[in-house]
């Protein structure tokens, strides 16, 4: 019997190894590919020199260092963050369809960032990245508060999602309304941002969101043990020694912080939070958080780098990132729904 189990756990380990190696390879490949492509062609040799030696034509150095690199880091780190935040919300609600976008958390952040920018810019000339993050976090928490209120009175999961989508619509409508009335030239960008985009990322932003997201990643990874227990259901988690009340608060705070941070810098991005953790679980054939957390982060990075590549390169005009993520992510979600429903019937 133990012999058999050994071979089984051996197969499992090989699978995990292959998935992680594949994700890392895809990440490296996509980073290189993304640096290498754009409206201006720069040869690979030049790019290597620009990055590692900081030598080359000034215009090319600028393109690589000021445009492409920050954007790539944004796509990778924020994409990973989205997947992570989605995974946390799915854990919290015990629902594979939960995520920052469908529950309206991203839209809540969006609204608060928009308000902050419009109001603050009347008094001060410049908004720091931190202010954006704080506004987005507060917005995420308020939207989450509404979702939780709805969850208290609506026991049905599908109705909870409908409530989330409604919250999302309300927030988006108010945001659009505000943007329309804001004439300030500084807010022109706001419209682009509110559609979701990795473009225009500044290095000062990169430092801020990378610090926040990576700290969150480590924190969430350290939470894999209670998350594992919580996946079994609240009552069992408690019987295993988890302080469920405290843990739930922590989950909400972490997922809102990550979702808010992503929204502050890239706007609302759809479907990454649902599709990626699901794909990762299918690939790993396990839902163990200790594996799914790092793999989802990598997967989110890979997914967003790929989507951003398409957003940039598919047509002459750049697409909004959500257009691409929805096109690729939504079918995954539909397939998942059909599969789940099929297996239950």
């Amino acid at each position: 019997m133990n012999q058999l189990s050994m071979s089984h756990s051996g197969v499992r380990r090989v699978r995990y190894g292959v998935v992680f190696a594949g994700l890392i390879a895809a990440l490296v490949l996509l980073v290189v590919w993304n640096i290498n492509t754009g409206s201006v062609h720069i040869s690979v040799g030049n790019i290597a020199r620009i990055i590692f030696l900081r030598q080359g034509e000034l215009s090319e150095v600028n393109i690589v260092w000021k445009l492409r690199l920050p954007r790539i880091i944004a796509a990778a780190v924020l994409g990973g963050g989205l997947a992570l935040s989605g995974f946390l919300m799915q854990t919290f609600f015990g629902n594979p369809i939960a995520g920052p976008f469908v529950l309206g958390i991203s839209s809540g952040s969006k609204l608060f960032v928009a308000i902050t920018m419009i109001v603050a810019l009347q008094y001060i000339p410049f908004i720091s990245s931190w202010m954006m993050v704080v506004a987005a976090f507060v917005g995420a928490l308020i939207a989450m508060g509404f979702v939780l209120l709805a969850a208290r009175s609506i026991r049905q999961m599908s109705m909870l999602l409908v409530a989330g989508i409604m919250i999302s619509y309300i927030c988006s409508a108010i945001t659009e309304f505000l943007i329309n009335f804001a004439k300030d030239s500084d807010i022109v960008n706001l419209h682009n941002w509110s559609q979701g985009s990795f473009s225009g990322t500044k290095w000062s932003d990169v430092y801020v969101f990378t610090a926040i997201i990576l700290v969150c990643l480590v924190a969430v990874f350290l939470m894999s043990k209670p998350i594992n227990a919580y996946q079994m259901g609240e009552a069992y988690a408690q019987s295993m020694g988890v302080n469920v009340k405290r843990f739930r608060v922590l989950l909400i705070l972490m997922s809102s912080l990550i979702a808010g941070c992503v929204t502050a810098f890239a706007g609302p991005i759809s479907f990454v939070g649902i599709a990626v953790p699901h794909l990762i679980k299918m690939l790993l054939k396990t839902a163990k958080p200790i594996l799914v957390i790092p793999a989802s982060f990598l997967g989110g990075a890979v997914f967003c780098l790929f989507c951003d590549y398409i957003a940039r390169m598919a047509f002459e005009n750049e697409l909004s990132i959500s257009t691409v993520t929805a096109l690729l992510g939504a079918p995954v979600v539909i397939a998942m729904l059909i599969r789940r429903h099929g297996s239950k019937a």
């Binding site: 079994m232 259901g233 009552a235 019987s239 295993m240 679980k281």
Partner: peptide, 17 residues
């Protein structure tokens, strides 16, 4: 408590895979 007392509950274990 978890080191002294274990439970078998009526509610279904959620979890997946």
């Amino acid at each position: 408590l978890s080191r002294k007392l274990a439970v078998v509950l009526t509610e279904r274990i959620k979890g997946e895979l």
